[in-house]
């Protein structure tokens, strides 16, 4: 099995270009690739699109933040495609003042749009959002008498993924509720950088338990100890 390049976090984020759509795994910071996020924060781009479940947590009183919140604080993105921003007042401020274009997407729809892109589908038909603002501007499709919204597939340029273990070919397993959007985003981008807590030799992962097949992964980064 061919090995994937193992690079540092700083080298990895150089693969991200200004204007790219970047998918970042994690749910309120759980399962986020913290080393890659720190490297991207240093990188200094400002016009990227963030695709993520949430903008993670930020407490303005204590300054504490997790997940992608440091990237939000440094305004690394001009657009965010997100399901939930309630735990980060800074992104709410940026949205209200027109500094960042925030596109809110129902969480299940976001997951399925990303999966669809990775699976070569044009989109999905979902009942979620019918009769709400989410329906605005979208096509309603009737199938056997039931109505659905047509939600288009959502791909990105680069995915930043956090795995528990990856073998050197790129097969990945995840850690508890840290799995969330990671395996989906790994399917939907041309460049897929996996920050693994542990990188093991090919053959060490049981093929029965691999969650992300190596075919999706382009680069590996050793996670922070």
């Amino acid at each position: 099995m061919v090995q994937k390049p193992i690079v540092t976090a700083d080298e990895a984020v150089k693969l991200i270009k200004e204007g790219d759509a970047v998918m970042v795994g994690g749910f309120l910071g759980c399962g986020s690739p913290t080393g890659l996020i720190a490297a991207l924060e240093k990188r200094g781009t400002g016009k990227m699109t963030l695709i993520c479940n949430d903008c993670a947590m930020y407490n303005p009183k204590t300054g504490e933040m997790n997940g992608v919140a440091p990237l939000v604080a440094k305004k690394r993105f001009s657009t965010a495609v997100i399901s939930h921003i309630g735990t980060n007042p800074e992104i709410q401020r940026q949205m209200n003042e027109g500094e960042t274009d925030v596109q809110l997407v129902p969480q299940g729809t976001l997951a399925e749009r990303i999966r669809a892109a990775g699976a070569g589908l044009g989109g999905v038909l979902t009942p979620t959002g019918l009769g709400t603002e989410v329906q605005d501007g979208k096509k309603v499709v009737e199938v056997d008498g039931a109505k659905f919204l047509l939600e288009k597939a959502l791909s990105g340029d680069v995915a930043l993924i956090r795995a528990k273990k990856a073998d050197k070919s790129g097969n990945c397993v995840y850690d508890k509720s840290g799995r969330n959007f990671n395996p989906l985003m790994a399917m939907a981008c041309g460049t897929v950088i996996v920050e693994a807590d542990e990188i093991v030799e090919i053959g060490e992962l049981d093929p029965e338990v691999v969650v992300t097949p190596s075919v999706f992964v382009t680069h590996l980064v050793q996670g922070r100890k």
Binding site: I85, G86, L104, P106, T128, T132
Partner: peptide, 25 residues
Amino acid sequence: GNLANYKIPGKMVPGMGGAMDLTVG
């Protein structure tokens, strides 16, 4: 049977998270 629980325009916009899917499903 309509539910509003994710947005007060101009005041509080936390986003719907999973609520829209849960309500439908």
